[in-house]
Simulated scan of single mutants.
Amino acid sequence: MEKLESTVLAIGQTFQTTAHLANLLPTGTVLAYQVLSPLLTNGGHCDLASRFMTEMLVCICGLSCFILTFTDSYKDLNGNVCYGFATSNGFWIIDGQAVLPRERSQSYRLQFIDFAHAIMSVLVFGAVAMFDQNVIHCFIPEPSAEATELLTVLPIAVGVFCSMMFAKFPTTRHGIGFPLSAKC
């Protein structure tokens, strides 16, 4: 019986860790990137204009990953979900539907871990971009053997490292579009 309980506990912890990862990884941004990347890179055959557009795409998506890490949501007393940004002063509601009491707003203040998650989110997006052969061929048309090895190993290392950090230091934030927990 004790073994069954420990197995159930381990499975529950695995699901909880997976939920934290899904909440932090830039899935919407990556989807937009993967749709636009083949178009803007011209299938990996970039001229000056397509290279500039690809640079802008990577920068905008990276910035999106960073900024969206600071979004959060909560349920008001009527059960309506309200969205906003965590700030140094508390919670800034962006959809204007409700007023959050000051003491509750303070619980949403920015913390050091928020910035760590934002940086790791950008790193994860960078790893995804480094796996995109169209982008690689756009920026490095003929990579050397060392560059090819680096472009193969580095994204995996970044992904593993950030996944471990996300799992070890989970967030309590609920970005826009993610389900609310019992805290809300």
Rank of each mutant, 00 (worst) to 15 (best):
V8L: 12
L151R: 06
V160M: 13
I94T: 10
K75A: 12
C65D: 03
L77Q: 15
A86C: 13
A86H: 07
P143H: 07
S50M: 05
G79P: 07
R104N: 12
D114P: 02
V153S: 08
V135Y: 00
M120P: 04
S163D: 00
A10I: 01
L24F: 07
F112I: 14
G12P: 02
E55Q: 13
N23H: 11
L40F: 04
F112D: 13
H45I: 11
F91H: 03
G177H: 04
Q13E: 12
L77G: 11
T69P: 01
V8D: 06
C162Y: 04
C82N: 15
P170K: 03
E55R: 12
C46F: 01
L21G: 03
M165V: 11
C46R: 00
S105T: 04
S50L: 04
A22Y: 13
L68N: 12
S181A: 12
V81Q: 07
Y108G: 03
M130P: 02
T54L: 03
L63Y: 14
A129Y: 03
S37V: 02
C138E: 03
M165D: 03
L150M: 10
A167Y: 01
E146Q: 15
V135K: 02
I113V: 08
A129I: 01
V99L: 11
C46T: 01
C184G: 15
F112S: 11
K3Q: 12
T69E: 06
E55W: 15
E5V: 10
T171Y: 00
T14R: 14
Q16S: 13
G28C: 05
I176W: 13
D47W: 06
S107L: 15
G126F: 09
T7S: 15
V135H: 01
V35R: 11
G12L: 09
S144C: 05
A19F: 11
